[in-house]
Design a protein around this nucleic acid. Structure first.
Length: 557
DNA sequence: CTAGGGTTAG
């Protein structure tokens, strides 16, 4: 019987097992355990075999002992059936046996490796119930995996569970939670969590404070962010570092407060916290978007003087210059990086391709794509969407469509940006035939028009004078979705102003909040222009007042 | 062992 089991022949082994029943008291649980043990030595052990054995054990009415369970768990671990293993552990507990630390720890590890986090939490709870403590790296891994998958609630649950047992009070455990709360825009949750840590007397480190600075900057709450910086610079023992300053500089750039960002950059240099290439790249990107050439030159110079070397992110930081028409400068700077020996990647090539498109050199596009492939860099959908855009601007839309339909899309299929690129071109040109073609194409591919595509259509209807249809699209979006974006709203505003309906536009503006929409400064400026040209001075004054107050007064937390 | 950066469409 054991020989057969060892060979993996469960079926025939069980046959002999059954034959033992002619002897009193046989087969016993010891025979069963021995057979199971032999089976695990077989080279073709599998879940099915173990299932068969278990069924047989139940059929002949054997009551498992602790060895039965541990052998079974060993087998399940061999075949990698962690979830079945968890079931066996639970059954084992029902029988009153205590699973060993190593058995639970190994299950825990397995679930972490397979990113089956719910099961990992179940195992952790079992472990804590038996007084077992997971290793520190694995506990951190669980919390950070939960966070990176957006399961912040579960991460908190795990953290407080461990904290309640008196384990793991160091920042490495809760910093991932702080950061993911910030990244998912839960500033209220962040502050609540901070208060909670404070009450429990836990000690932060610089990374924890930086999370707070990040969350506040992201919301535009710079006064509060500076306050946090002050506390850090005081006697917190967590002096701000390059990452802290860079975080706030990034926030300032995103809110268009570039002067302030430059000021902070200067402060870093003065206080001996030297900015690194990441800091510079962020500022260069913001300057590029504003086409602030002199400042870019200055920064570019000073980073070289500091011995810093531009990298792939520096190259992509120049992309704003392309949009703002500083083509020659952008190409010089890009070429400078292209000819250096830094590692390039697909994003850098894509920006370079974009510069070729703007330079109206479509014949060079394919040779650049060939050279990127030769250098081992795979083009992605962005690569081809960039080329498609170039075609739309340079050639006829039929030729662009030809490219669209015959190119071997890297993502196996064009994405919504691909469709919108060509749809947008057709809409701008008022090319009804092409608009219809693209809409049909999307229909055939089962791709729904998204907010960008629908905004294009609104523009199209305005272009061809079908104003009612433009409004209908907007209404449709309000009622059925997708929710219009601020660009959609601005498109509508432009249309209303063009149509001498500034008062209506203002009415829409005041009602935006009811639909969950927010205007931006461009919305106000569009209206302001419209009101001025219609000589509606009361409205002009009103709009100017609102602009001065700040368009959307930052909600306080 | 936790933290800061980029490219396509409206």
């Amino acid at each position: 019987m054991q020989t057969l089991a060892q060979k993996g022949d469960v079926y025939n082994s069980l046959h002999f097992f059954d034959m033992l029943r002619i002897m009193p008291g046989k087969p016993s649980i010891y025979d069963y355990n021995a057979m199971l043990n032999c089976y695990l030595k077989s080279s073709n052990v599998c879940l099915n075999g173990m299932n068969l054995l278990q069924l047989e054990m139940r059929r002949v009415g054997l009551c498992p002992n602790v060895l039965t369970f541990s052998t079974l768990l060993k087998g399940l671990s061999i075949v990698g059936e962690a979830r079945v293993g968890l079931g066996v552990v639970l059954e084992m507990c029902d029988y009153g046996f205590v699973p060993s630390f190593s058995c639970l720890a190994s299950l825990f590890r397995r679930f972490l490796d397979k990113v089956e986090l719910g099961d990992a939490i179940s195992v952790l709870e079992l472990m804590l119930g038996f007084g077992y403590v997971p290793t520190e790296p694995k506990a951190i891994l669980l919390i950070s995996s939960l966070c990176s998958r957006g399961m912040i609630q579960d991460a908190c649950f795990v953290f407080f569970k461990l904290l309640g047992k008196g384990y793991f009070q160091r920042p490495y455990f809760y910093n991932p939670i702080l950061w993911s709360l910030c990244k998912s825009d839960q500033i209220g949750g962040l502050l609540a969590f901070f208060c909670c840590l404070e009450k429990k007397g836990l000690v932060y480190n610089t990374c924890s404070y930086t999370a707070l600075v990040y969350g506040l900057s992201k919301k535009g709450l710079f006064r509060e962010a500076y306050g946090c910086l002050k506390i850090m610079e005081g006697d917190s023992g967590c002096y701000p570092n390059v990452k802290t300053y860079t975080t706030i500089i990034k926030g300032l750039c995103e809110y268009g407060r570039i002067k302030e960002a430059l000021g902070l950059l200067g402060k870093m240099e003065k206080t001996g916290c030297d900015p690194d290439i990441v800091t510079y790249n962020i500022v260069i990107r913001a300057l590029s978007n504003e086409n602030m050439l002199n400042e870019i030159y200055e920064l570019y110079e000073s980073l070289h003087q500091k011995g810093l070397v531009p990298d792939r992110y520096t190259a992509t930081a120049f992309s704003g210059l392309l949009k703002r028409g500083s083509l020659g400068i952008a190409r010089t700077l890009l070429q400078d990086i292209f000819l250096s020996d830094i590692d390039l990647d697909v994003a850098v090539y894509n920006v370079y391709l974009c510069s070729l498109c703007h330079a109206r050199e479509p014949q060079e596009l394919s040779s650049l794509v060939r050279s990127m492939i030769k250098n081992g860099i795979e083009p992605n959908n962005i690569t081809f969407n960039t080329i498609l855009k170039g075609f739309c601007e340079e050639k006829t839309l039929d030729e662009a469509l030809e490219f669209f339909e015959h190119v071997d899309w890297p993502g196996k299929r064009p994405d919504s940006v691909s469709f919108n690129t060509i749809l947008s071109a057709a809409c701008k040109m008022g090319d009804s035939r092409m608009v219809q073609k693209v809409v049909d194409l999307m229909d055939g591919e089962g791709v729904k028009l998204n907010v960008v595509g629908l905004t294009c259509l609104m523009q199209y209807f305005c272009n061809v004078g079908k104003f009612d249809d433009c409004l209908k699209v907007f209404e449709h979006m309000i009622i059925y979705g997708p929710l219009p974006s601020v660009v959609t709203v601005n498109t509508l505003m432009v249309y209303l102003c063009k149509n001498h309906e500034v008062e209506t536009a203002y009415w829409v503006l005041r009602n935006l909040k009811r639909y969950g929409l927010l205007p931006d400064s461009r919305t106000y400026n569009i209206l302001l222009r419209g009101a001025k040209s219609e000589r509606k001075f009361l409205l002009v004054a009103e709009l100017q007042r609102k602009l001065r107050m700040g368009v959307n007064q930052t909600a306080s937390f």
